[in-house]
Design a protein around this nucleic acid. Structure first.
Lengths: 210, 210
DNA sequence: AGGCAACTTGACCGCAGGGTCAACTTCCAT
DNA sequence: ATGGAAGTTGACCCTGCGGTCAAGTTGCCT
């Protein structure tokens, strides 16, 4: 790869990182090229697809954030505290970091590195949930698949309230967590948990893609 | 108004009602015209704006649905049961009726009749919530303004899961309701309720408009 | 029946986004 | 220093949306 192409790729990566974090992963590619100061043709030439660019620019960032909160959650002595911490932090990411929110709430099958990060995260979620359930504080009918229900809820509230009430998602999360303790469980849930395939399908359209 | 215009208006109203209920209020106007079998120019000629069409076609439908569940909710002996019924039915509407979902989750300032329906509904919500809170079953820190938090949550889950798990919203609502009982309340909520202005702003962008 | 107002039509405009490619420019190995 | 490969550019195409309007058609009153 020639030196000037290398430089352009770097400029594009930088611009993409900025815009992805400011406005989410669906930001127009031409706008990224504009901010980088190159033609959009060059962007297509160097990266080919949006997903390839995402994979290069967003993966490490998302992995860092997601792994960090997962580790901290598991470090709590109290299993419930760890669980609640994890939920809150994940929701905070959704509210404050459009790029990570889209990683969590979208599907980018072409971004291979990103997909492995998602897989790793799912496994950790399972551990956090299982630990809290076994401790007896998390209601036993809550599955790790139910996490996407919370994320679906929060994604929309965070988006809808971003301009007018940027912190109100915390209130909603508090309500939700109160409903997840063992003592809060009243009667059998009306429907069973999502299957892994359903989790995949639903979590792939949490943030608006169409 | 000439007879043929009258007929066309009727065809357009019918097509609009169908498409609004199938696909929501943002369905392309040209598609409505196509289904009605007239030129889109005629649609613009007869109705002028999307909101005018909505006002004529959707208002009565939405009013009927919303008033019905509100009345039934207030008819429950038990205040909590009425409240829970209302939440569930509202969420069911969001999940099954795209048109009503968009009425609840959007803003159509040009649709005057529709606006009065919304105002009336808000007042009834207040009564349902107040009744359940005074009965002592609904946690006292829950405000009628918090209803939009639930609706925001459900709007997105219903949309995201519509294809793959069309009933899972019931599970999420069950979790949420369990968190709203007085006994579930653990500690002060991290942020206060939305102001009326914030409710207006947030509830205006529950469903995707941009 | 005729004529005019009312109505309809579809081509057309503007916008925004994704994506392609021939012609031009720049780098760098020889 | 120079020629050819590598890279860049921006005009161009396509799609789909909202919206307008001159020209043509139709209903209805006289």
């Amino acid at each position: 790869m020639r030196a000037d192409a290398q430089r352009n790729a770097e400029k594009l990566r930088a611009a993409a990182a900025e815009l992805f974090q400011e406005r989410g992963l669906q930001v127009p590619l031409k706008e990224i090229a504009r901010r980088a100061g190159v033609s959009h043709g060059t962007l297509y030439n160097l990266f080919g697809t949006r997903e390839a660019l995402i994979d290069e620019v967003v993966t490490d960032l998302a992995a860092e954030r997601l792994d960090a909160i997962a580790q901290q959650a598991l470090a709590f002595e109290d299993a419930w505290d760890g669980f609640a911490y994890y939920i809150e932090k994940l929701c905070e990411l959704q509210a404050t970091d459009p790029a990570v929110a889209d990683v969590v709430g979208g599907r980018y099958p072409g971004a291979e590195r990103l997909m492995t990060v998602c897989g790793r995260t799912l496994a950790t979620v399972e551990r956090i949930v299982e630990r809290a359930r076994q401790a007896g504080t998390l209601r036993p009918d809550f599955t790790s698949a139910d996490l996407v229900l919370i994320l679906a809820a929060n994604a929309n509230l965070a988006r809808a309230a971003a301009a007018s009430a940027p912190h109100v998602w915390r209130r909603a999360v508090a309500f939700q967590l109160d409903g997840l303790r063992t003592e809060a469980a009243r009667r059998p849930l009306p429907v069973g948990p999502l299957t892994p395939e359903q989790v995949y399908a639903v979590s792939g359209s949490l943030t608006r893609n169409p």
